[in-house]
Amino acid sequence: MNASTEVACLLKSFGNMAEQSLVGLEMAKADGLKVVGIYCIFAPVEIIRAAGALPVGLCGKRAEPIAAADGRLPPGSHG
């Protein structure tokens, strides 16, 4: 395997990262691990991991779910 094929192979494994992570999450929970959702880099992942739990960055990156928030949040808050 030359270097560029190796890189392409590695990159491919990131392609469906979201799905992979979900599977990983299910497995971790099945193993009895606690999952800690975080919204900000101020949540110290060192402490979460040190306690044997799994830190997970929560969704806030996609536009599709925004419509469901209308009526609960002022319209200007995602403008």
Partner: peptide, 14 residues
């Protein structure tokens, strides 16, 4: 009465 872009009061208004 909320001023547009005043997050604290607009958020609390709802």
């Amino acid at each position: 009465y909320g001023l547009m872009f005043c997050q604290p009061y607009l958020m609390e208004a709802i």
